[in-house]
């Protein structure tokens, strides 16, 4: 279902006036998008659903303060990103070492890496290839939390460098550099994983093993 900002604005205005059905429509419109973002950050279904729930409760509580200076989804995604970063930070207290992204990105970033575009065939088809998407899943799993956060904020939420910097509490320059490293890492991991990916339909075994790896 295509949505527009003006549709959202009408629903927001109705929800602000106490129309719960309008708020539910907003929820239904964004439930999977918010889940995808939260899952991108957190890599865990239950945690992502928790964030979805928390985000909409928060949105409802702050709805009277929302003046429409930004679009509803920009505001919603900022809340989601904030909750996810909070979630990661809380978890980070328990496992600090895993959150030091320097440990993870330095090696991969030094050498350039390219996605084997030619072997992936038509990009429009590539993004529908199950094996390739499973490899993307696995690659996201391998990224550090900080790298995953910038990738998700940029590619899924379309956030500007300035907004990302505000959200992560760092400078725009840091975001620029971090995003560069994150993409480079992702390309490197993907190119390794996709080196021997067969064309769609060539072999189901290869697909299964990749899926299993992604799930593990």
């Amino acid at each position: 279902m295509a949505t527009t900002d003006s549709d959202d604005q009408e629903l927001v205005a109705a929800a602000q006036a106490g129309d719960r059905r309008a708020f539910q429509t907003l929820y239904e419109r964004y439930e999977r998008k918010v889940y995808a973002v939260a899952y991108g950050f957190l890599r865990n279904q239950e945690d992502a659903l928790d964030v979805l729930q928390e985000a909409f409760i928060k949105v409802h509580r702050y709805l009277p303060n929302f003046e429409g200076q930004s679009s509803f989804y920009t505001w919603l995604y900022r809340i989601v990103a904030n909750l996810c970063i909070d979630h990661l930070r809380r978890a980070g207290r328990k496992r600090d070492v895993e959150f030091d992204d320097k440990l993870k990105h330095s090696e991969a970033s030094e050498s350039s890496a390219h996605l084997p575009i030619s072997s992936l065939g038509d990009p429009a088809q590539a993004v529908k290839n199950k094996e390739i998407l499973s490899a993307v899943e696995a690659a996201l799993d391998q990224l550090s939390d900080k790298h995953r956060a910038v990738i998700v904020m940029r590619e899924l939420q379309g956030m500007s460098y300035a907004d990302m910097a505000k959200e992560m509490g760092c400078s725009k320059g840091t975001i620029m550099s971090r995003l560069f490293h994150a993409r480079r890492n992702m390309q490197k991991i993907l190119s390794t994983r996709l080196d021997h990916v067969p064309e769609e339909g060539d072999s189901s075994e290869a697909g299964d093993s990749l899926t299993q790896e992604a799930a593990s």
């Binding site: 509580r61 702050y62 303060n65 505001w75 809340i79």
Partner: peptide, 10 residues
């Protein structure tokens, strides 16, 4: 923050 979108303090 006032719009609930970000944390000002932790």
């Amino acid at each position: 923050s006032r719009d609930g979108a970000s944390d000002l303090l932790n």
